[in-house]
């Protein structure tokens, strides 16, 4: 069964309507159109996948992310999380335990004033026993490699460490899926690497589905599958190889190719024989050196003759 299955979901942010005002029906319609953040999104995610969602600011990525643990529910269409309809209020807590979210600003999502209490917050909310809470908290801290900071104030941590604590807070609830909503946007390269390495490990070792919303194209190269959103719709989907083969489209949607793909494209434009959809250094290296080798070979054979 798919962990996430969305069927033509649309969402509009509420627009203030003045019932007395007769004027400007057109403007209101316009406003309503502008408030439409999602427009018929259909997609499926299988358990254990590492997914990247790309798209420019305002493309609807974050709105979609908020649907995933029922912070908002679709105005049209249906979204199933692990078989549960997000509109089913009785399943609300199960959905939120199944899908955990890590947000962008580390300071605005930490509630506790000591690291271990922060990680415990979710388990406390669902009424777990004291013993289970402690066990869960320390296991989660161990998994994100923050055990030694258990008794420290979050204010004293670096950005990358704060985000790892946030991941631990989600992890303590034993989720099947973790959604990262631009969680590395405010971090420096080292912090970004810390967080990405942590979630990659969770994905690989524990089979937790990861959905990463990001502006870093390099991160997307390593995903299993990519969705590109624009204007509230899924405009492209596929493996990194498929997505980054469609070079023109990527740029039309306000994104940028990873540097590796940019180089492949530049070389190809200069007449070199480089295949489309290069995603790793090895592939590009092979493509460049293979040509050299074949040329060298022909030279050698020519020389022999």
């Amino acid at each position: 069964m798919e962990i996430i299955k969305s069927e033509k979901i649309s969402y509009s942010y509420p627009v203030f309507e003045d019932p007395d005002s007769q004027e400007n029906k057109e403007l209101l319609e316009k406003k309503k159109e502008a408030a439409k953040a999602l427009d018929g999104v259909s997609l499926e995610v299988r358990p254990g996948q590492f997914i990247c969602i790309l798209g420019r600011n305002g493309s609807g990525k974050s709105t979609f992310a908020k649907h995933l643990n029922a912070l908002i529910t679709p105005t049209e269409g249906t979204l199933w999380i692990d078989g549960m309809d997000t509109k089913d209020e009785e399943k609300l807590w199960d959905i939120r335990r199944t899908v955990g979210m890590v947000f962008q600003n580390p300071d605005n999502q930490i509630i506790g004033s000591i690291v271990d209490e922060e990680v415990a917050f979710g388990l406390e909310n669902i009424g777990a026993s004291t013993r289970d809470i402690r066990k869960g908290v320390y296991k989660a801290l161990e998994e994100v490699n923050m055990r030694e900071y258990a008794k420290v104030s979050p204010n004293k941590l670096s950005g990358g460490q704060k985000q790892r604590v946030a991941v631990a807070g989600v992890l303590a609830m034993n989720p099947k899926c973790i959604v990262l909503d631009e969680s590395t946007a405010m971090l420096d390269p080292r912090g970004r690497k810390e967080v990405m390495d942590t979630v990659k490990k969770l994905n690989k070792d524990d089979g937790i589905t990861i959905i990463s919303i990001t502006h870093y194209m390099e991160e997307a190269l390593e995903a299993d599958y990519i969705f590109v959103m624009d204007n509230g719709q899924v405009r492209m989907q596929g493996t990194p190889r498929e997505i980054f083969s469609r070079e023109e489209e990527i740029e039309e949607l306000g994104l940028k190719l990873p540097q590796l793909c940019q180089l492949a494209k530049a070389l190809r434009n200069k007449g070199m024989d480089i295949p489309m959809g290069i995603t790793t250094e090895e592939e590009l290296k092979d493509a460049i050196t293979k040509r050299q080798i074949s040329e060298n070979d022909s030279e050698i054979t020519a020389g022999e003759k």
């Binding site: 979210m101 999502q109 406390e124 909310n125 009424g127 004291t130 609830m173």
Partner: peptide
């Protein structure tokens, strides 16, 4: 912060336990 708390199943003091 409210969004983050909600996403972590916070719903007031009722039924809450403590570490």
């Amino acid at each position: 912060l409210a969004t983050a708390m909600e996403s972590r199943c916070y719903s007031g003091g009722e039924g809450r336990t403590k570490m």
